[in-house]
């Protein structure tokens, strides 16, 4: 465990809390992509199957349970809550996210740490997480005005994986740990946020509304 890793996981948790606060307080999920949230549920389920097969960890296990519970809750709100589901931008959330699942599954089938059910699904979840934000970024580009909570949510979500990159650099030098699969996927994931980060920081510095081209 190192400070980067701890900060990364807390940032990830914070992003989810921001989203839950937004949905619960404004009773609205405007600007949030349900497809991205669906993909995150799939990411967490396929990644945390090891909850049943591996020894529980005082640190990881609570986080895994919270991530699973919150991601499922968010999808439940967006799909079934009578008020919230009316605010979902169904016609703008158009990204064909099913097209992301098959390539990740095929890639996981061929590139994984070990060809077992758990490891292949784990690899699938790593690849899927890298691209899961795409529907959300596409939705933001078509949103006329992005509310602050949504902007902060996406920013924290991108920042957490960037912090994981620092964690991996630290672990490479301090613990001589090499992990190609999460490293490359994490780089791709963070790179996808590059233009969002640029516009987010620009809008923050000029103290103006966040607007993606």
């Amino acid at each position: 465990m190192n400070a980067f890793r701890l900060l990364a996981d807390l940032t990830h948790l914070l992003s989810i809390i921001i989203l839950l606060v937004k949905i619960r307080t404004t009773k609205s999920c405007a600007g949030i992509s349900l497809k991205t949230q669906d993909l995150y549920v799939l990411v967490f389920i396929s990644r945390y199957l090891d909850l049943f097969t591996r020894p529980l960890s005082l640190y990881n296990t609570p986080f895994k349970l919270v991530f699973l519970a919150t991601s499922i809750t968010i999808v439940y709100y967006m799909r079934y809550h009578k008020v919230v589901k009316q605010t979902y931008n169904k016609d703008s959330d158009t990204f064909k996210h099913y097209f992301l699942i098959l390539p990740c599954a095929v890639l996981a089938f061929f590139i994984n740490p070990k060809f077992t059910f758990i490891e292949v699904l784990w690899s699938f979840s790593i690849y899927l997480e890298a691209v899961a934000i795409l529907p959300q970024l596409v939705l933001l580009q078509s949103s006329s005005n992005i509310d602050n909570l949504t902007g902060n949510y996406v920013f924290m979500l991108g920042a957490y994986r960037a912090l994981y990159l620092l964690n991996w650099i630290y672990r490479f030098f301090a613990e001589d740990v090499v992990r190609w699969i999460p490293w490359i996927a994490g780089l791709v994931q963070t790179a996808l946020y590059a233009d969002f980060f640029y516009y987010y920081i620009k809008s923050w510095r000029n103290n103006e509304r966040l607007k993606l081209p």
């Binding site: 996981d9 990830h12 591996r54 990881n60 784990w122 740990v177 992990r179 699969i181 999460p182």
Partner: peptide, 10 residues
């Protein structure tokens, strides 16, 4: 072992 390691992160 390598496999155990790949699961020590979230």
């Amino acid at each position: 072992d390598e496999i155990a390691d790949s699961h020590d992160e979230l």
